Lab assay of single mutants.
Amino acid sequence: MQRVNMIMAESPGLITICLLGYLLSAECTVFLDHENANKILNRPKRYNSGKLEEFVQGNLERECMEEKCSFEEAREVFENTERTTEFWKQYVDGDQCESNPCLNGGSCKDDINSYECWCPFGFEGKNCELDVTCNIKNGRCEQFCKNSADNKVVCSCTEGYRLAENQKSCEPAVPFPCGRVSVSQTSKLTRAETVFPDVDYVNSTEAETILDNITQSTQSFNDFTRVVGGEDAKPGQFPWQVVLNGKVDAFCGGSIVNEKWIVTAAHCVETGVKITVVAGEHNIEETEHTEQKRNVIRIIPHHNYNAAINKYNHDIALLELDEPLVLNSYVTPICIADKEYTNIFLKFGSGYVSGWGRVFHKGRSALVLQYLRVPLVDRATCLRSTKFTIYNNMFCAGFHEGGRDSCQGDSGGPHVTEVEGTSFLTGIISWGEECAMKGKYGIYTKVSRYVNWIKEKTKLT
């Protein structure tokens, strides 16, 4: 034993070699072989497995989906700052455009905790909710729209109204504003409101030439003092309507412009014939205590009207009353817009006519005020429907199939267009061939041609 100890002390290297040989010859039971080890760690190889990531292109799944990435790591994937920024906006807080917040056709661009709407022409605001041009839906104005110097929408209202708090709607500024039905039992019968379409306001006024200088022999019209197929109006439903009495009662109609003036057809009036105007009328054979009678003290036909040349060209006249009318729910003026808007309103496509005229061709006159909704007829169809001249200051309205029309005794009465609950004068009943005849239409004086003249002559002093 002493000898062994001496050998170990003198030859430590020998001992180490012996131990190493023993270990190498022993069977290893701690580690699995290569094949079995792979069965336990069965993990798919990654895209760049075996390579240094710093030297390969980034992978979106590896960089940002398996674990949260930084902007720089995302930049490695896209290799483009702009594309990385677009991805980053949604990656950080989701897609803010998912709810489609942009209105009126706006395009949404996502941002971090926010979004941006790219608005089409005519709109602005956070969600493109603000109209900035009158060309689109009248700028959301209830009545009139004008573009300011910086191309912003400025709404306005006709006389007797003021802008509401929203700067879009119009509200009454006087007790009985024009064009409004205020009798409670008839307010439910107000005709369907007309909503502004998209309009090209630059070209809204037709490029028409008034044929002022045409000389033409007097034409022989049949029954051209021209509501057939209409309905009984309720008291106060058309408070701007008046009836004219002269040699015979209810020979023509008219509309209240203001307390002192009536507008009617020029062919209705004769110099030297006494005319009485009755406002607030409903049943011409009954006294309903809503009527107001006034005498006409002055007749002003349009300066281009000449019955000797043509009885229905420039067929418009103004009547001055001896005493002002007292405005109330049964006696209310009709609204008159400017030339541009009167023309736009007419193009809405349908209007209402009213009167006490004959209820059928050569038949009896109506006792109760009649009204009828009539569609506008395109000019080409209008011209083809008659052998008589249709001037540019006239328009056609009615039904091709016949059966409904204005008729004798309705002449001078109103053709009105309702705009968001307020009625505007767009025409004056003038003439036609018979009444409600198939293929024939009622012919009306186009008020847009005469609004400046009306307003100039009827100013209240």
Score class of each variant (00 low, 15 high):
Asn80Ser: 11
Gln167Gly: 03
Phe196His: 09
Tyr371Arg: 11
Cys157Asp: 00
Lys387His: 12
Glu208Cys: 15
Cys407Trp: 14
Ser255Trp: 00
Ala173Cys: 04
Gly253Ile: 12
Arg298Val: 02
Leu20Asp: 01
Leu346Ser: 06
Val199Gln: 13
Gln241Trp: 13
Asp338Glu: 07
Val228Ile: 11
Gly355Glu: 11
Ser49Gln: 11
Glu35His: 05
Ile429Tyr: 14
Thr190Trp: 13
Arg43Met: 08
Tyr312Cys: 06
Met437Ile: 05
Asp33Ile: 06
Phe395Cys: 02
His302Lys: 01
Ser99Leu: 12
Ile454Glu: 00
Leu103Ala: 03
Gly272Leu: 03
Ala397His: 02
Gly230Val: 12
Arg384Ala: 14
Phe31Ala: 13
Tyr352Asp: 05
Glu27Thr: 05
Ile136Leu: 08
Ser411Ile: 11
Arg373Tyr: 11
Lys51His: 11
Thr276Glu: 06
Ser430Gln: 10
Ser11Ile: 14
Ile15Met: 14
Thr158Asn: 05
Pro235Trp: 06
Glu165Tyr: 07
Ile112Glu: 15
Gly122Met: 09
Ala279Gln: 01
Asn283Glu: 09
Ala192Asn: 09
Pro235Ile: 07
Ser184Thr: 07
Asp405Tyr: 14
Tyr201Gln: 14
Val419Gly: 01
Ala173Asn: 06
Asp212Ile: 07
Glu54His: 08
Lys51Trp: 02
Thr84Asn: 15
Thr186Arg: 08
Pro375Tyr: 14
Lys89Thr: 13
Ser70Ala: 14
Gly363Lys: 14
Arg3Asp: 04
Asn113Pro: 14
Phe55Cys: 14
Ile210Gln: 14
Asp110Lys: 15
Leu383Ile: 13
Arg449Tyr: 15
Gln96Thr: 05
Gln143Ala: 01
Met437Trp: 13
Phe196Glu: 10
Val273Asp: 09
Ile443Gln: 07
Lys457Ile: 09
Asn393Gln: 08
Pro197Tyr: 09
Pro235Tyr: 09
Pro197Leu: 13
Glu73Phe: 06
Val353Lys: 12
Thr190Met: 04
Arg162Thr: 10
Pro12Gly: 13
Gln185Ser: 10
Glu73Cys: 07
His314Met: 01
Asn113His: 12
Ile309Gly: 08
Phe399Glu: 15
Lys438Val: 07
Gln237Leu: 10
Ala436Lys: 07
Asp223Tyr: 04
Arg75Gln: 03
Phe388Val: 15
Ser25Phe: 12
Glu286Tyr: 05
Pro172Trp: 03
Ile262Thr: 01
Ser255Cys: 10
Val273Ser: 11
Arg384Lys: 14
Tyr352Cys: 13
His282Ile: 05
Leu244Cys: 02
Arg162Val: 08
Asp150Leu: 09
Lys311Val: 09
Ala207Arg: 04
Thr445Phe: 04
Ile334His: 00
Gly413Ala: 14
Gly439Ile: 02
Asn138Gly: 07
Ala265Glu: 00
Thr158Glu: 04
Phe121Val: 13
Thr81Ile: 08
Ser114Tyr: 06
Ala397Thr: 06
Lys188Ala: 06
Asn258Thr: 04
Ile428Cys: 01
Glu434Pro: 15
Gln90Asn: 13
Arg364His: 11
Ile429Lys: 09
Leu60Gly: 15
Trp431Glu: 13
Glu142Asp: 09
Pro235Thr: 06
Glu288Asp: 12
Thr271Trp: 03
Val227Asn: 12
Leu369Met: 13
Asn213Gly: 14
Ala149Asn: 09
Gly398Pro: 04
Lys126Ser: 12
Asn203Phe: 06
Ala173Tyr: 09
Glu73Asn: 13
Glu27Asp: 05
His34Cys: 09
Leu319Ile: 10
Glu86Arg: 15
Arg373Gly: 06
Pro375Thr: 12
Ala173Gly: 09
Asn213Lys: 05
Phe78Leu: 11
Glu66Pro: 14
Pro324His: 05
Lys109Ala: 07
Phe238Asp: 01
Lys39Ser: 09
Arg83Ser: 14
Ser204Asp: 08
Glu285Lys: 07
Gly105Asn: 05
Lys247Trp: 08
Ile210Gly: 12
Asn306Lys: 07
Arg62Tyr: 05
Glu171Asp: 09
Leu372Pro: 06
Val242Thr: 03
His302Tyr: 12
Pro120Gly: 07
Asn48Ala: 13
Pro12Ile: 13
Arg191Glu: 14
Thr342Asp: 04
Asn203Cys: 11
Ser430Lys: 03
Val4Met: 09
Leu325Glu: 01
Thr417Leu: 01
Gly421Phe: 03
Glu79Phe: 11
Phe55Met: 14
Val353Gly: 02
Ile15Tyr: 03
Thr422Trp: 01
Pro172Gly: 05
Phe144Gly: 00
Gly357Leu: 11
Ile256Gln: 01
Ser49His: 09
Ala436Asp: 11
Lys89Pro: 15
Glu76Asn: 15
Asp95Gln: 14
Val331Leu: 02
Leu319Thr: 01
Ser329Pro: 14
Pro333Tyr: 01
Ser182Glu: 09
Lys347Tyr: 13
Gly246Asn: 12
Gln408His: 14
Gly253Asp: 05
Ser99Pro: 12
Asp405Glu: 15
Ala207Trp: 12
Glu54Arg: 13
Asp131Ile: 05
Glu208Thr: 13
Thr342Trp: 01
Leu103Ile: 04
Ile336Ala: 01
Val353Ser: 14
His267Val: 02
Asn100Trp: 07
Glu456Thr: 09
Glu286His: 10
Cys69Tyr: 05
Leu130Tyr: 09
Ser70Thr: 07
Val227Leu: 05
Thr225Val: 09
Cys335Ser: 00
Ala308Tyr: 13
Val56Lys: 03
Glu72Met: 15
Arg83Thr: 11
Leu319Cys: 11
Cys407His: 06
Glu61Cys: 04
Asn222Ser: 13
Arg358Tyr: 07
Gln96Asn: 13
Glu79Ala: 12
Arg358Glu: 14
Ser385Glu: 11
Leu130Ile: 06
Glu67His: 12
Ile390Ser: 13
Asp249Thr: 12
Ser220Leu: 10
Asn80Met: 06
His361Arg: 12
Leu189His: 13
Cys141Thr: 00
Asp410His: 15
Lys39Pro: 15
Ile136His: 13
Asn313Thr: 09
Gly280Tyr: 02
Pro120Leu: 06
Val248Pro: 09
Glu54Ile: 05
Ser99Met: 14
Cys335Ala: 00
Leu19Ser: 01
Gly58Lys: 15
Ser184Arg: 06
Ser114Asn: 13
Ala266Asp: 00
Trp453Tyr: 01
Ala317Leu: 02
Asn313His: 09
Leu346Trp: 14
Asp322Phe: 01
Gly427Ala: 02
Val374Ser: 06
Thr186Pro: 13
Asp33Trp: 04
Gly398Leu: 05
Gln219Lys: 11
Pro44His: 04
Gln370His: 13
Asp198Phe: 07
Val77Lys: 12
Ile15His: 02
Ile256Val: 05
Phe78Tyr: 14
Glu320Phe: 01
Ile210Glu: 12
Cys134Gln: 02
Gly349Cys: 03
Ile334Phe: 01
Tyr341Asp: 13
Ala173Val: 08
Gly351Thr: 02
Trp453Gln: 00
Thr85Met: 07
Tyr352Ile: 14
Leu321Cys: 02
Gly122His: 09
Ala37Asp: 15
Glu434Met: 15
Asp110Ile: 03
Gly230Cys: 12
Val368Leu: 10
Ile299Met: 08
Asp338Cys: 09
Ile284Leu: 08
Lys339Ile: 09
Pro324Arg: 05
Asp33Pro: 03
Asp110Gln: 14
Leu14Glu: 00
Arg404Lys: 00
Val242Trp: 01
Cys128Phe: 02
Arg180Trp: 04
Cys145Phe: 02
Arg384His: 14
Thr190Asn: 07
Glu116Asn: 12
Leu383Gly: 14
Asn393Met: 03
Ser255Gly: 06
Cys102Tyr: 01
Ile262Asp: 00
Asn36Ser: 09
Phe345Asp: 01
Val56Asn: 13
Glu285Ala: 09
Ala380Met: 04
Thr287Cys: 08
His289Pro: 10
Gln219Gly: 10
Ser187His: 05
Cys97Asp: 02
Asn306Leu: 05
Thr194Asp: 08
Trp453Phe: 06
Phe176Arg: 05
Asn38Val: 09
Gly50Trp: 06
Tyr330Thr: 02
Thr186His: 06
Trp88Met: 15
Cys117Thr: 03
Met65Asp: 15
Asn258Pro: 00
Phe121Gln: 10
Val451Ile: 13
Leu41Phe: 11
Leu211Trp: 13
Tyr330Gln: 12
Gln96Leu: 15
Thr190Ser: 12
Ile300Arg: 02
Val153Leu: 06
Pro333Ala: 06
Lys339Trp: 08
Asn213Val: 07
Leu321His: 00
Asp200Cys: 15
Asn59Asp: 11
Phe424Cys: 00
Glu159Tyr: 05
Cys141Ser: 00
Val183Phe: 07
Thr158Trp: 02
Thr271Cys: 04
Val416Tyr: 11
